[in-house]
């Protein structure tokens, strides 16, 4: 059995915004992250993701609960824990007074490495992240994508066992996101455990071994993508478009056998069914009775997006409760 690299039990965090008003940003989170896995931590804005990452990385202290890295409590050993973890913040916190290379060598020295090891590591990670040509440039001249790669390279210089990535691909174009993911996957293959938060649902769906969906400071569900998809009542969707759409169609469709749920999305009818092989004959028969003609019909599997929407109430944007 793979051992847990990170474990939390009943972690809570309250913020006092005035003497009598507190916000419970995290309300008791239990997590187990296994060594070597890519673990996704998903949730809408204000769900408590950033607060949780801050606590897991010793940057904030929990109000209560315990966090263990390699079975050792990090609250009592924050200095030791920081040696084991690498953190890539959401914002650009690179050292703008230094060049890209210096960002890496100084980071290495903050971690107690000597000059020659620091230089060796800088060479290695500049090469790995394709930044060698621009290593002597000041980071203020770096594009968003390059800065992001440098941030990950810097977090890796002391060779942590677990790397925390807070929204690593936000603001990057699709091509750059793909490159970045390739590099993150390579780090994982080499043995680094990855803990990440992201807004883009297709990324964790494709890349994460396990995912936790968090909302209102609590874990709503945890498991593999497939396991999570099982949580929605029907995870196959029949999408139908008509030449003339009428809202009545939705009410009629609800009465069809097999159909668990009906959603109208911009004149498109979405029928949620349990079976991966629904009886299309019955549906076609029903469509023939309608005062319109069929334009398109297709069957698709639900995505993590659907799970996310299902589990996080509205799934949409809520008020930002944490920075």
């Amino acid at each position: 059995m793979t051992k847990n690299i990170l474990q939390t039990s009943n972690v809570t965090k309250d913020f006092f915004i005035s003497k009598n008003r507190k916000i419970e940003a995290v309300k008791g989170i239990d997590l187990e992250v296994k060594q070597g896995e890519i673990f996704g931590f998903l949730g809408p804005n204000g769900a408590g993701k950033s607060t949780m990452i801050s606590m897991l990385t010793t940057q904030k202290q929990p109000t209560s609960g315990e966090i263990l890295i390699n079975d050792r409590p990090i609250l009592e050993n924050p200095e030791w824990a920081r040696q084991k973890i690498g953190v890539v913040a959401q914002h650009n916190n690179l050292d703008k007074g230094l060049t890209a290379r210096e960002n890496l060598t100084y980071h290495a020295k903050y971690f107690g490495l000597d000059d020659s090891t620091a230089n060796q590591r800088a060479d290695e990670y500049l090469e790995k992240f394709g930044l060698k040509d621009r290593q002597h440039d000041f980071v203020r001249s770096y594009s968003g994508g390059m800065a992001q790669r440098l941030k990950i390279a810097r977090a890796m210089v002391h060779q942590p066992e677990i790397l925390f990535l807070d929204e690593p691909t936000t603001g990057l174009d699709p091509a750059y996101r793909a490159i970045l993911w390739e590099q993150i996957l390579a780090l994982n293959k080499a043995g680094t455990t990855i803990f990440l938060t992201t807004h883009y649902m297709e990324e964790p769906e494709q890349l994460c071994d396990r995912i936790a969906i968090v909302d209102k400071g609590k874990i709503q569900a945890i498991g593999t993508t497939e396991e999570l998809k099982e949580l929605i009542p029907a995870n196959n969707i029949i999408s139908i478009t008509f030449s003339d759409f009428s809202p009545e169609f939705a009410q009629q469709a609800e009465r069809l056998p097999e159909v668990e749920n009906v959603v109208v999305k911009e004149e498109e009818l979405l029928l949620y069914v349990k079976s991966a092989h629904p009886d299309f004959n019955q549906i076609m028969e029903w469509i023939r009775t309608l005062d319109t003609s069929l334009e398109t019909i297709s069957l698709s599997k639900s995505t993590l997006d659907d799970v996310f929407i299902h589990l996080t109430s509205k799934g949409g944007i809520k008020d930002d409760r944490t920075a």
Partner: peptide
Amino acid sequence: EIEDRLMAP
């Protein structure tokens, strides 16, 4: 920028 230093062990 200080965040990197605060994360030193």
